[in-house]
Computed example of a mutant assay.
Amino acid sequence: MGSALDRDNVHAFVCEVVEWVVDRIRHAERLPRRSRHVRLPDLTGLPVPEARLRAMEAGVTLTLVRTQPNPPPVPGMVIEQSPDPERRVRRDSAVTVWLRF
């Protein structure tokens, strides 16, 4: 059987955990809610790594399409995107970008 000291330690520990959980919940309630929709950034003219970063920050993913336009822009640059920039889309949707490689 546990002693009174063990029960007191367990009780104190549980109280600390409960306080921590309640504090985290209160903190989460103060955070802005994430919208289901996001506005697409303009990715045209960006190199692929920067386009990926901006897409990630906006909450969307990239689908890359390689193309051979004439005249060729700078290799590895986004030359077109769909949906268009500034359009609102569902968070986590895919944006298709066409690249010159």
Rank of each mutant, 00 (worst) to 15 (best):
M1V: 08
G2A: 15
S3D: 15
L5C: 00
R7Y: 14
R7V: 06
V10R: 13
V10K: 09
H11N: 14
V14D: 00
V14M: 07
C15P: 00
C15G: 07
E16D: 10
E19N: 13
W20V: 03
V21E: 03
V21L: 06
V22H: 04
V22M: 03
D23M: 09
R26Y: 05
R26G: 14
R26V: 08
H27G: 02
A28D: 08
A28G: 01
L31K: 15
P32L: 02
R33F: 02
R33P: 00
R34C: 08
R34H: 13
S35W: 00
S35E: 12
H37M: 09
H37Q: 12
V38R: 01
R39N: 06
P41A: 13
T44V: 15
T44S: 14
T44N: 05
G45H: 05
V48N: 00
V48I: 11
P49I: 07
P49R: 03
A51G: 04
R52D: 13
L53W: 14
L53N: 10
A55T: 03
M56Y: 11
M56K: 15
E57V: 06
G59W: 01
V60G: 06
V60Y: 04
T63I: 08
T63V: 09
L64G: 07
V65S: 08
N70R: 14
N70D: 09
P71N: 05
P72H: 13
P73M: 02
P73K: 00
P75H: 01
P75G: 02
P75D: 02
M77C: 07
M77N: 03
V78T: 02
P83G: 12
D84W: 11
D84Q: 15
D84P: 09
E86Y: 11
R87M: 12
R87F: 03
R88I: 03
V89K: 03
S93K: 07
A94K: 10
A94G: 03
A94L: 06
T96V: 13
V97G: 02
W98I: 00
W98V: 01
R100N: 12
